[in-house]
Simulated scan of single mutants.
Amino acid sequence: MNVDEKPTFKPNDPITRLQAIRLILKEKGIVDSFDVANPGFVDVSPDDVGYEEIAMAAELGIINGKVNAQGKRYFDPNGKLTRAQAAAILVTAYDLKGTVPTDFKDVPKGNWAHNYISTLVANNITTGYSNGEFKPTINITSQHFATFMARSLDDHFKPMK
Rank of each mutant, 00 (worst) to 15 (best):
residue 32 D to V: 00
residue 1 M to N: 06
residue 135 K to P: 05
residue 93 A to E: 05
residue 50 G to L: 13
residue 146 A to H: 13
residue 50 G to I: 11
residue 56 M to Y: 03
residue 139 N to Q: 12
residue 85 Q to T: 06
residue 161 K to N: 14
residue 2 N to W: 01
residue 36 V to T: 08
residue 61 G to C: 06
residue 97 K to R: 14
residue 19 Q to K: 04
residue 96 L to S: 06
residue 43 D to M: 07
residue 161 K to G: 10
residue 158 K to C: 12
residue 130 S to F: 11
residue 75 F to D: 00
residue 72 K to H: 11
residue 145 F to D: 12
residue 57 A to R: 04
residue 130 S to D: 13
residue 7 P to C: 12
residue 123 N to H: 05
residue 118 S to I: 02
residue 77 P to G: 04
residue 60 L to M: 13
residue 139 N to W: 01
residue 63 I to D: 05
residue 88 A to Y: 01
residue 66 K to C: 02
residue 15 I to T: 11
residue 31 V to H: 03
residue 91 V to D: 12
residue 123 N to F: 07
residue 38 N to H: 05
residue 135 K to N: 08
residue 68 N to G: 06
residue 77 P to K: 07
residue 147 T to C: 11
residue 112 W to N: 02
residue 56 M to S: 07
residue 153 L to N: 10
residue 103 D to Y: 15
residue 111 N to C: 01
residue 43 D to Y: 00
residue 89 I to W: 03
residue 53 E to T: 06
residue 29 G to Q: 07
residue 138 I to R: 04
residue 8 T to L: 15
residue 111 N to V: 08
residue 63 I to T: 14
residue 155 D to P: 11
residue 40 G to E: 08
residue 95 D to T: 09
residue 85 Q to G: 00
residue 73 R to M: 08
residue 98 G to P: 14
residue 10 K to A: 14
residue 90 L to A: 02
residue 131 N to E: 01
residue 29 G to P: 05
residue 76 D to H: 01
residue 35 D to N: 09
residue 74 Y to W: 14
residue 2 N to K: 11
residue 115 N to H: 00
residue 114 H to R: 08
residue 51 Y to G: 09
residue 78 N to Q: 13
residue 41 F to C: 02
residue 104 F to M: 10
residue 10 K to M: 09
residue 149 M to G: 08
residue 112 W to I: 05
residue 24 I to E: 06
residue 120 L to F: 07
residue 98 G to V: 11
residue 8 T to A: 15
residue 93 A to P: 05
residue 115 N to D: 10
residue 151 R to D: 12
residue 43 D to S: 03
residue 157 F to W: 14
residue 97 K to Q: 15
residue 31 V to A: 09
residue 94 Y to E: 08
residue 81 L to F: 09
residue 144 H to M: 15
residue 5 E to T: 15
residue 43 D to F: 00
residue 99 T to W: 14
residue 4 D to E: 15
residue 37 A to G: 07
residue 117 I to E: 08
residue 128 G to R: 00
residue 22 R to L: 00
residue 85 Q to A: 01
residue 98 G to N: 10
residue 40 G to F: 12
residue 117 I to H: 09
residue 92 T to H: 15
residue 92 T to L: 13
residue 124 N to Y: 01
residue 17 R to G: 09
residue 90 L to N: 09
residue 38 N to G: 06
residue 142 S to G: 13
residue 106 D to E: 11
residue 5 E to R: 03
residue 139 N to T: 09
residue 151 R to P: 10
residue 119 T to D: 04
residue 77 P to E: 12
residue 161 K to F: 14
residue 136 P to D: 02
residue 2 N to T: 10
residue 34 F to M: 01
residue 67 V to N: 03
residue 133 E to I: 07
residue 76 D to T: 03
residue 124 N to D: 09
residue 28 K to P: 04
residue 76 D to K: 05
residue 67 V to Y: 07
residue 55 A to N: 07
residue 28 K to G: 02
residue 60 L to N: 13
residue 87 A to L: 01
residue 68 N to V: 01
residue 38 N to T: 13
